[in-house]
Design a protein around this nucleic acid. Sequence first.
RNA 1: CGAGGCGUAGCGCAGUUUGGUAGCGCGCUUGGUUCGGGACCAAGAGGUCGUGGGUUCAAAUCCCGUCGCCUCGACCA
Length: 475
Amino acid sequence: MAKDQFVSQIADIDADFPQWYTDVVIKTKLVDYGPVKGIMVIRPYGYAIWENIQRELDTRFKAAGVENAYFPLLIPMSFMTKEAEHVEGFAPEVAVVTHAGGAKLEEPLVVRPTSETIIGHMMGKWVESWRDLPLRQNQWCNVMRWEKTTRPFLRTSEFLWQEGHSVYATGEEAETETLNMLHLYEEFAKNVLCMPVLTGRKTEKEKFAGAVATYGMEAMMHDGKSLQSGTTHYMGQNFAKAFGVQFTGKDGVLQYGYTMSYGVSTRLIGALIMTHGDARGLILPPPVAPVQVVIVPIAAKKEGVLEACNALKEELKKAGLRVKVDDSENSPGWKFNEWEMKGVPVRVELGPRDIENGKMTVFRRDICEKSELGLADAGKELCALLGEISENLYHKAEKRMKERIVDAETLEELLKGVDGGNFVRAGWCGCRACEDKVKEFAQATARVMDKENTAEKCVVCGKPSVHTVFFARAY
RNA sequence: CGAGGCGUAGCGCAGUUUGGUAGCGCGCUUGGUUCGGGACCAAGAGGUCGUGGGUUCAAAUCCCGUCGCCUCGACCA
């Protein structure tokens, strides 16, 4: 098959970015559409990415002192109504179980859209004394939010995530933890997903239902749109009061704890696809790639070729790499394209010519270039190469993001900025009306607030700026 | 829910204007030759044309109804 025909299997990344994205997740066998609209099936190749994300995050959580636990899928409806803002925020999108065991339930059960309520309930029982604090737990689970429009990984009615929940004795500690977790996510995005993110506090309009403050990390996609890739929330005593999370302090006084929560989801997979991918398909960052090195035998039937491939595989495995030998019956050209589309960071071609010369032909997915490396010390060489690829992916994405952050002083400039696929930094007076006006005028939302208020005037009303905000169109 | 589009083989589509044998590409199966960028040859399997009704000698095609899906507007990790 001609090469242009292969490329045409995936839509043009520049011409139609959403179509490109959908093509890629389906054709690379990350997901499939299931029988229920808006609920995706994650196939082994996609799930393997999630497992790598899980492992990397879990290691970090545990190092920070967080323990894993599991809480129920079904939550009594009455729990949802205990925190006023929370129920208002989530009511439109919960799925409700009304019947079970062949009979109508006395109290409907909601399928968790997030677990603040039930974890708050349990923590209320577990926390009695200041000695029980801080209580820091995390769970890996699925949640359900009945979304109106969906897209694989980016917005689905059911998704996998982790949600961490902590109780502290003081607001300061809980707030500090909220920021610490945001930084943990940022470091993770950089070093594991090779993805630069913008972090900061969310506006009142964009914050989590029931939170005092929400912080988020936003990643810039190829087309300049923003994707909320993780959030951390400081709840103050809102949930502690609703669920009776009380403890006796050192001073002997019974008091409410302060809670916080944080989560990232399978959306991260969508984020890294849309951050790194190109016209040929996926480009997976080495730390999360299910296969880091694929070995393609050339002239596999010739004596010694498969043996050499398998020997190399064993050597690379010993070096800690995830390796696959593609010994299928397909032609080499077919395999090249297949694994490139699937985003494998490095391909090694091994044929009679290479073996004779004691070399291997190495193809880098990130720059699509071939070179030769010596077969001796292959493990060390390829580990170094994967590290180089990770850095290159990060720097490329970081450069793009930095180049596409522009400032605006008027609504027209802001509109022009987001139309051009940029994040727009602008002043904001802090009022809801001006925020709504930006949305109406430019179809852009406040992603996060900058750490410092560098702007002078609100981009809408011209009053003094209270927060400098990054505005963008968002997925 | 407001606007637009689409339902024909596993996937992508043509055929509908003007009714008349169910087609194409990819994929799949079998056998053979191949293998350093999606190889080639040969043979084959696979569709009650979303669905219900109507018109007609005859409907994928015309008429009426209905269901489903996709894209764009209001919420979200």
